[in-house]
Each structure stands twice: as C-alpha cells, then as structure tokens.
Design a protein around this nucleic acid. Structure first.
Lengths: 142, 142
DNA sequence: AATTTATATTATAATCGTTCTAAACTGTTG
DNA sequence: CAACAGTTTAGAACGATTATAATATAAATT
C-alpha cells in the first residue's frame, strides 16, 4: 500500500524515470495487501479494463521486464508456453495447479529447505526453485 | 544401445507406428550410453547435419511431443524461451549453468529429498522439480 | 521558463518458435 | 493387393514477443 510519491522515488532510485505509465503499472502491481501472480496478458487486460487511458502493449512488456531486471518482480516459468510474474520477490517455492492453471506460493510450512549437498565446482548458486505440480486425484498423471 | 527391432516394438507397444522418421529419431536419442538434454533446434540440426535424408521440422516436433506424451522424454523448462528435453526419464533434479546454458542432472548425492510437508487439499502431486541456477562467481547475481 | 538532451511511449511491422493444413505417402489389416 | 487409418511434408498461419522509428515526455542545462 505505497503512495504515489513512494513509487516515484523507488523508480528514480533504480534509474527508471517515473512516467505516467510506469506509475500506473506500479499501482496495479504493488498497491495491494497481498502479493500475486500474473501473466503479461493478465496485466494488459487488467489495465485496459480498469482504466480509460490505455498503455501500449510494448510499454507493458518493457515495464514488466524493467521491473524484473531491477528485482521488483520474479519470473516463474511453468512450461514453454506459460510464464508468470510474481510480485513476491522473497525466496519461496510454488505449487502449480494443473487443473486451474493457478500458481500458489509455498512457505516453509509446506516445503522444507532444499538440501544442496554438492554444487558444481567453481560456480555460485544464483537461485533454487522448487515447482510442485498438482492435479485432482481423478486427473491423468504423467 | 538398443537395436532397431527393439525400437520397433517399443513404438508399436505405445501405439506409434514405427516409421522411418521415428526410428531415425529413436536412434539419435536413445542409441547412446548416457542420457542427455537437447532442444528441438539441437535435434533438428543434429539430424540435418548427420544424415543425408532430411526430416521435416513438423515431424520432429510431432515426434518429440509424441515421445514426451508416451513418457520416453521429459521436458524441462528453464525460462519462457528455453525448453529442453531430457532422455533421462527417472525422477531427478537439475543444475542450470547460466554461463554455458547447459543443464546438468542431479542425483541424490547433490540434492537431498525435497520434504513436502503439506500438499494442497484434494490434490495429488504429479511432479516435484528442483532447478538450481548456477553461474560463475564473477557473474552478476539476481 | 525556454532550450536541449536523453529517455520513454506508441502503433505498427517484423521476427521467431511452434502449430495447423491439406495433399501425398506409408504402414497395417483383411 | 486393396482399403484404410495414421504419418509426413512443405508451406501457411498463428501468437507471443521484440524491433522500429516517429512522437512525446522527463530531466538537465542555459
């Protein structure tokens, strides 16, 4: 629940000009109680439905990627044709419900720490991500 | 290191006709000592470079997806624009080297069992996948 | 506050990977 | 070997994303 002026400084601090479009997208993404998952398409739809003034699709792509590069968003790839963004940028894992196509955040109550015993020599771990796919009992398994 | 006749029955048993193209792809994918990771593009390139007779790209897509659906291949999605297939169909996890774009299989010596304490109510777990991204120490982290 | 400069936005075109199409071909069955 | 269903093929179509280049805006400079 940030104020507009807070978004302005957040953007300035990361070298992004606080344009009308970026501030609007900030409000849509970060002016909330809870974090959430979205696709570019979800976001574009949300904006076009809830505001009279439209934002070009190219700008939406640019902004989401800029926010991701600055660490304000995380990208979660489910399959080659499904990419979600997450406003929760803390380390966490996900359930993916194959019935509803919904992502659900996990916390330490659901998935214990992943124990990495040996890393590749000379490399540093940049992230560890667990994806648990779930489906209703009656569903086909693979 | 399977013989051609073994591929023929393997295909027949899963309801796939053993066509010339599918058998050639079987030989490229499964006539090896070690399992490996590949992209559709890798495979198409491999075939066009190493055989005089070409296979249509559509057939390569169809075949890889058919093999995946039959459980002879696993798909590993790294990011929205990178999808790999794995001829190792056992349960295992991966390191992804961001410097070289190479996938490396993990076994239990590298990553311990993932402890899923609570699943979503009414759902069954269809898969659990861990992806550990690594990069050289000097690389930018995110 | 006007001017200059750098950066961002826009609509549209271009691109790329993948899937679709429909005609020709091949494997299988009787 | 005839008939049929399944497969392959080249090329078209598609959809998501990125590039383009003109216009607009923000910031820096005067």
């Amino acid at each position: 629940m940030l104020k507009n002026s807070e978004f302005v400084s957040k953007l300035r601090n990361s070298g992004l000009r606080p344009t009308k479009q970026r501030l609007k997208i900030c409000r849509v993404l970060f002016n909330r109680d809870k974090t959430f998952h979205f696709t570019i398409n979800d976001l574009a739809k949300n904006i076009s439905e809830n505001f009279n003034e439209k934002i070009s699709l190219a700008t939406i792509y640019n902004t989401v990627h800029a926010f991701k590069d600055k660490g304000y968003l995380k990208e979660i790839t489910i399959s080659s044709d499904k990419s979600y963004f997450d406003t929760n940028i803390t380390k966490h894992h996900h359930f993916y419900d194959e019935d509803t196509n919904l992502l659900i955040d996990c916390n330490d109550n659901e998935i214990g720490k992943v124990n990495i015993k040996n890393n590749i020599t000379g490399k540093k771990i940049s992230s560890v991500e667990v994806l648990v796919r779930v489906a209703s009992d009656t569903q086909n398994q693979n």
